[in-house]
Amino acid sequence: MTIQIKDRSMVTPGEVIAEGEYHLGSNVYRQDKKIISQVIGLVTVKDNQISVVSLKGKYLPRVGDLVVGKITDVSLNSWVVDISSPYPGILRPSSSLDRRFDPVKDQTRKIFDVGDVIVAKVFSFDRTRDPTLTLRSDNRSGSGGPYLGKLSGGRIIDVSPSKIPRLIGRRGSMISTIKQYTNSRMIVGQNGRVWFKGNTFEEEYLVLQAIEKIDREAHTRGLTDRVKEFLEDAVKNLKKNSEKTKAEKPKEKKDATKK
């Protein structure tokens, strides 16, 4: 019963974390009595359970997850949705529309077309079959739940799905910080895809920078404070610049788009 690696330190695949009777969490495996990491990530020990938080990796669908997807194919009675996972999501009108859908009269393409971005929930997934999605949020909790359906305008960016908890923060602290400073709307999919829409280009670009910062520095401590600091400074600069002459503005925009 010894833990050889400290909590929150980095391990590589094949590195022995502990020896003895521990419960296996995610991204670890047992060989003989050793508990070994499967991925590069940070060790977390919680109530005798050892797991590794991966720093990268593909999204594996889980029932009930909110995902942001792109429509890649339309057939008579279904849509194929890219949810940045090894498996494509399947969305059917019967499980997504409030009214009846008649494949003879109604056209799927008129509802969602290729290239559309949607937010959906994972309805079922078991690895033997492709995950099915739904646009109905179960109203058991009462208050409607998050918006599901087509997203118009805005931008999407992919981050690695293991960093999504960091992007959301403790009880949504990180995400509300970003929203607050930039006055923008954000939808974070568990599949690592984030949709955001701001009022101005500059604010939207700030959101992008903040997300990229979180994606890059997700494994470090004190990230929420640093992001807050970054946004505070950036918003101040924005205000200063807007007070300055207008001649400088188009230049900045060009720079921003280059990046």
Binding site: T12, P13, G14, V39, S162
Partner: peptide, 11 residues
């Protein structure tokens, strides 16, 4: 493979 975050027994 390890950089891609794919679960590995060992390098």
């Amino acid at each position: 493979l390890a950089d891609a975050g794919i679960p590995l027994k060992d390098l």
